[in-house]
């Protein structure tokens, strides 16, 4: 069981992620309505938000240090923040500003941060081999740093998933594979894409432990991740963790979601893990109502500062597009 301090820290983490993304969502729709135009507004392009998946990021990243590598997907914000990415520079990148992590070259699906060894990819499952490589480098360099690869359940049907698991296992590398099963790959439910119920079962095929967390509970994620991270750090090889989590929003912002029922959306709202977790911490006396309110207020201030920084930062010079092709 995590300590009360850890529980409070995980709560704060989940709150700041949720508020950051809600604020990005508001910014995203600025200038795009009434007739939605994906190219318009201060945050153009596609936007994939992770509301509902905070428990996975908070529970896993609580065990990591900045020298551990983390790779994520097209839906990267929750993981990036939980792993310690600077919120200001992250927001600035999402707004396409020169002060952003990649000077506006990457955007929200391409956040790269050497300070926290974080990277992500918009190509499904293709962040996974990079995590294997980071763990390989750590071993060659005599470091006990590990690598964590986050991916969706949809990605578990892509070749790169299978190749990465086998490589990590056969070379006994310190990788933790974290499958965020939100049941949907855009409009395709898991039952239509995957012949078995649990991707954790696939771990056995590669010779590594596989753990299923059935209920989006940050404490259960924390405990399973603790074991997997410790094992990876002491040279015990990779693990696979699958968390049944929730996608509270559309696949991308503007997704009409005609493929989901009203009942499902209602059920999701009622089982929002952030609110359940907060209630539980208050009910068990880990968090006072005042502590909870303070966590939201502190997050609000941090997020407002970061978004303000992003908004007021300058755009890169147009001809900067030609820079950074080669080192």
């Amino acid at each position: 069981m995590p300590s009360n301090d850890t529980l409070r820290a995980m709560h704060r983490q989940m709150v700041r992620i949720r508020l950051f993304e809600e604020t990005i969502q508001q910014s995203y729709f600025e200038g795009k309505l009434p007739a939605f135009d994906i190219a318009a507004g201060p945050v153009p392009g596609e936007m994939h938000l992770a509301a509902g998946q905070e428990p996975v990021a908070a529970g896993v990243c609580a065990h990591l240090r900045p020298s551990d590598t983390v790779t994520a997907t097209h839906r990267p914000h929750h993981v990036a923040l939980a792993h310690g990415m600077d919120m200001r520079r992250m927001a600035a990148e999402i707004f396409g500003k020169d002060t952003g992590l990649g000077h506006g070259k990457g955007g929200h699906m391409h956040l790269f941060d050497p300070a926290t060894n974080f990277g992500c990819s918009g190509i499904i499952a293709e962040g996974m081999p990079g995590a294997v490589g980071a763990a390989l480098a750590a071993r060659k360099q005599g470091r006990d740093d590990i690598a964590v690869s986050f991916f969706g359940e949809g990605a578990a049907n892509q070749g790169a998933f299978h190749e990465s698991l086998n490589l990590a296992a056969v070379w006994k590398l310190g990788v933790v594979f974290v499958c965020e099963d939100n049941d949907w790959a855009i409009s395709v439910p898991k039952a239509k894409s995957t012949a078995i119920a649990s991707n954790a079962d696939r771990a056995a095929a590669y010779g590594m432990p596989g753990v299923l967390i059935p209920d989006n509970d940050p404490v259960a994620v924390y405990e399973a991740a603790g074991e997997a991270v410790a094992r990876a750090r002491r040279g015990g090889g990779p693990s696979l963790i699958e968390v049944k989590t929730q996608r509270l929003l559309g696949h991308f912002e503007g997704d009409p979601q005609l493929y989901r029922t009203a009942e499902e959306m209602e059920r999701l709202k009622a089982t929002d893990a952030l609110h359940i977790f907060e209630r539980r911490l208050v009910d068990t006396g880990v968090l006072s109502e005042a502590d909870a309110a303070e966590a939201w207020a502190a997050a609000r201030a941090e997020v407002d500062d970061a978004i303000g920084f992003a908004r007021t930062s300058p755009y890169p010079q147009p001809s900067d597009a030609l820079l950074h092709v080669f080192a």
Binding site: I38, P44, G45, E46, G107, M109, H110, G122, I123
Partner: peptide
């Protein structure tokens, strides 16, 4: 042309 980045 609609800011979807290098992979889209």
């Amino acid at each position: 042309g609609y800011s979807d980045g290098a992979q889209h």
